[in-house]
Write a protein that binds this DNA or RNA. Structure first.
Lengths: 223, 223
DNA sequence: ATTACTATTCTACGAGTAT
DNA sequence: TATACTCGTAGAATAGTAA
């Protein structure tokens, strides 16, 4: 999605194009968005081509209506803004950089005693492996330590014939604004305070895709 | 405000740049918004130049934070979307075209018996004159007739030594997304169903500015 | 490593105009 | 009147590279 197209769509929205057909001449529309008649015409064509609006040509201009797909796009931005502005206490943002680690989390994530709880409490069966993220900035380290002080979702430990497994705390999180997964907060870990382990229903390295050194953004839900 | 700059700002917002400093390399940022490292660098410089973000260069990248002005911009869009999406029953959109008419509304608007009520019930003293708008599309005509069936704000009629003055109904409205005014619904009028009269605290032809034939968008508040 | 300058490429804008 | 085509050009994007 291009920025200028978004602005054109927003302008139509401002006129109520999601509630009714608007009679819109390209010259008038051009004035509104600060471009020529020709460019305004092109914008409307592009919006129509992308399936964001429907057009109907008439002798007096064109009847424009924002259709389902266009409204989806608008709602998506709206939800992003709403979450960010009004959910300040419900969400925490983090950036990390992919690296290859020992994968302690992967060990936990494969134990059936944990797996069933993940499925139940997070709503997905985790891919048998974790994505290791290294935190670099002071703000990210602080955010991570803030998480330690919050309840989150507790995956209870258990005992089997071999040994005792401790509790694991986790937080649902959106990875790169695309995949729903979770941040694992394993109590004792080899890693220091600058590392985070991520689980998801799929292999994130393949799905996004990611490789060592790539930046990853997390939106952590504190609930 | 340019569309691409807005998208860059939105991307930073998605990472939580309004809640904390983000460590952001231009290469990574470029990947996110789909441009080269050089263009990403320029975007951040432009955002900083416009006073929308603050930057702090470090050897590992730049620490980015959305400042007051940038957040204002984001909130503005948020409010637009919120109003349009969640205030469907509270707001009606209309388009009209400026024309020079007989100005019957202007006559009413100068009578002190009405003027005082306008000031009290609408919160502004109307400029002594109305803006006449002609409606062209079927959707606009329907919207206008919808208004006739709604209560709105009633400006009571009165009697003076000369004659009796009837009630006037009006609705608060935002004109061209800029000026707060109102739509006048005079009961008996010379005009047909395709005309709307607008009042505002200032001369709209001068303030916006407008001339005959210009398109005007109205956001009418139904309350 | 970074950021960001300069040079070059190329996209996208608007003038002119056909329909 | 509309919309939207072609086309010359300006400005934006990237490549290369310096700091």
């Amino acid at each position: 999605m291009d920025g200028d197209l978004w602005f054109a769509l927003l302008q139509i929205f401002k006129m109520g194009g999601h509630t009714r057909q608007i009679l819109l001449g390209t010259t008038d529309f051009g004035k509104m968005i600060g471009v020529s008649q020709q460019t305004a015409s092109r914008r409307l064509l592009e919006l129509a081509e992308k399936g964001l609006i429907s057009r109907e040509l008439t002798p007096e201009g064109q009847l424009i209506f924002i259709n389902e797909k266009g409204l989806e796009l608008i709602k998506e931005v709206y939800n992003t803004l709403k979450m960010g502005l009004e959910g300040v206490d419900k969400v925490k943002f983090l950036n990390g950089y992919v690296f290859s680690g020992f994968g302690e989390g992967a060990y936990y994530v494969t134990k059936s005693g944990y797996r069933e709880q993940f499925a139940e409490k997070l709503g997905f069966v985790p891919f048998p492996g974790t994505l290791n993220l290294k935190l670099r900035s002071a703000a990210d380290l602080k955010a991570r330590s803030d998480l330690e002080g919050l309840p989150g979702i507790t995956i209870k430990g258990f005992v089997n014939s071999e040994r005792t497994y401790g509790d694991v705390k986790c937080f649902p999180a959106k990875i790169n604004d695309k995949v729903d997964g979770a941040v694992l907060m394993i109590r004792r870990t080899h890693y220091g305070k600058d590392v985070l382990e991520i689980i998801a229903p799929e292999n994130l390295r393949k799905a996004l895709p990611l490789k060592d050194g790539d930046m990853v953004q997390l939106k952590v839900h504190l609930e």
